[in-house]
C-alpha cells in the first residue's frame, strides 16, 4: 500500500474515534456545537460548489435550506405533534397523517429543495455576477414569504416546534463525511473540470463545446439539494424552526465560512465551518460583563460580533483568497511543511 493511503486510513480511524469520544465524554452543549459545525460543513460545501467551483454568486441559500427544513420536519412529525403545532389553523389533511422514516424524509427534503432550484433558479441563471446574486436573494425572500403565508402547510409565522431530534452526532457527521467525499469526487471528475472552466472563462468554455447553461443549472440543483439536506438537519438539531430563521443573515454566515476557508477549496470549507461555529460560541464571553482590572464593563451585547468581524478582516487582508486559497489538503503538503521546518532547524540542510 502507498504511504498516503495508509495515512488516510489512519486519519479516518482517528476521526471516527474522535467523534465517538467527543460524543460520549463532552457535555451536551459542546457536542451540540460540534454537531452544528458538521451541518455548517454541509452547507458551506454546497455554497462553495456554486461560488467557488462554478463561479455563480448566489445569495439564495437560506431559501433552499428553508424548503428542506420544513419538508423534513413536516414529514417526520407524528400526527399528534402536528395537531399540537397547528392550533391556529389545522394542517392540510394529507400532510396530517403522513409520517416517513427520517432517512427518506431527509432525501425528500433535498429533492424538494432541488425542485425549487429547478423552478425558480434556472430562469435566474441567465443572469451573471451581481445580478444573479440579487435575483437569487429575491427568490429566497419569496420562498420565505410563501412559507410565512401558507398557514395550513407550514404553520406560518408560528413556525414548527418539537421537531424530532434525529440529528445526532453520528447522523450529522456521517452526512458531512458523505458530503465531503461527494464533493471531492464531483470536483475531480470531468464534470467538475467543466464547472471550473465555466468559472474561469465562460466564453472559452462555450467554444470548447461545454453547454454552459447545463453545467450551471446542474451545479445549482446539486447545491440546492445539499442545502435542503443541511437545512433539514439543522431543523432536527435545534428542533424548532420558523421563517425568521431563514433570512439573508443565515446565507451570509455560510458565505462567510466559504470566503474565510477559501473559495474553491473543500478543505477550506470544512476548516472554515468548524472555526466559525466554534469561535461564534467561544467568543460569547465578550458579550458578558467583564472585569478588565482597570475598568469594568457591564455586558456589551454584540461585542462578540465586532471582534469576530475584525478577525475576519485580518484574514481577508492578509490572505485575500481565504485560509486555504483554492488548495486542498494533501499528505504530501503536510509532510512537506514538517520537512521544511526540520530542514530550517538543521541549518537548512535536508
Amino acid at each position: 500500500m502507498k504511504r498516503n493511503t495508509i495515512l488516510t486510513i489512519a486519519g479516518l480511524v482517528v476521526l471516527v474515534a474522535a467523534v465517538g469520544l467527543a460524543d460520549s465524554i463532552l457535555g451536551r452543549f459542546t457536542v451540540r456545537i460540534l454537531n452544528l459545525s458538521a451541518i455548517y460543513i454541509i452547507l458551506a460545501l454546497s455554497l462553495n460548489l456554486l461560488n467557488g467551483f462554478t463561479g455563480l454568486f448566489s445569495l439564495g441559500h437560506a431559501g433552499f435550506m428553508a424548503v428542506g427544513a420544513y419538508v423534513s420536519a413536516i414529514l417526520t412529525m407524528t400526527p399528534a405533534q402536528k395537531e399540537m403545532n397547528f392550533f391556529l389553523e389545522p394542517i392540510v389533511p394529507i400532510l396530517a397523517r403522513i409520517q416517513l422514516p427520517f432517512p427518506i424524509a431527509l432525501i425528500v427534503a433535498g429533492l424538494c429543495a432541488a425542485l425549487a432550484a429547478v423552478l425558480i433558479g434556472v430562469p435566474a441563471l441567465r443572469l451573471r455576477d451581481d445580478y444573479l446574486a440579487i435575483a437569487t436573494l429575491g427568490f429566497a425572500e419569496i420562498i420565505r414569504v410563501i412559507i410565512t403565508n401558507i398557514q395550513s402547510v407550514t404553520n406560518g409565522a408560528q413556525g414548527l416546534k418539537a421537531i424530532p431530534k434525529y440529528s445526532t452526532t453520528w447522523v450529522v457527521w456521517t452526512v458531512a463525511a458523505i458530503a465531503v467525499v461527494f464533493m471531492l469526487a464531483l470536483v475531480r471528475s470531468s464534470y467538475g473540470r467543466t464547472m471550473k472552466a465555466v468559472r474561469d472563462d465562460e466564453i472559452a468554455a462555450e467554444a470548447m463545446g461545454i453547454d454552459v447553461f447545463k453545467v450551471k443549472s446542474t451545479s445549482f440543483v446539486i447545491s440546492s439539494f445539499m442545502a435542503g439536506v443541511g437545512g433539514a438537519l439543522l431543523g432536527h438539531l435545534i428542533s424548532t424552526i420558523d421563517p425568521k430563521m431563514f433570512t439573508l443573515m443565515l446565507t451570509f454566515n455560510i458565505l462567510l465560512i466559504v470566503v474565510l476557508g477559501g473559495n474553491g477549496s473543500i478543505t477550506g470549507s470544512v476548516l472554515g465551518a468548524i472555526i466559525v461555529t466554534v469561535l461564534m460560541e467561544a467568543l460569547r464571553f465578550l458579550d458578558m460583563p467583564m472585569n478588565l482590572v482597570f475598568f469594568k464593563t457591564n455586558g456589551l451585547p454584540g461585542l462578540r460580533m465586532v471582534i469576530f468581524s475584525i478577525l475576519l478582516m485580518i484574514v481577508v487582508l492578509y490572505r485575500q483568497r481565504g485560509l486555504m486559497g483554492n488548495k486542498e489538503f494533501s499528505w504530501d503538503g503536510v509532510l512537506g511543511i514538517f520537512r521544511r521546518k526540520n530542514s530550517t532547524r538543521n541549518g537548512g540542510r535536508p
Partner: peptide, 20 residues
Amino acid sequence: RLWKDMDVLENVLVACHLRM
C-alpha cells in the same frame, strides 16, 4: 483564453469532455 486556475493537461481535458 486559457483557464488560468488549471494546469496544461486539465485545459486539454476539459475540451475532451465534449466527446466523452
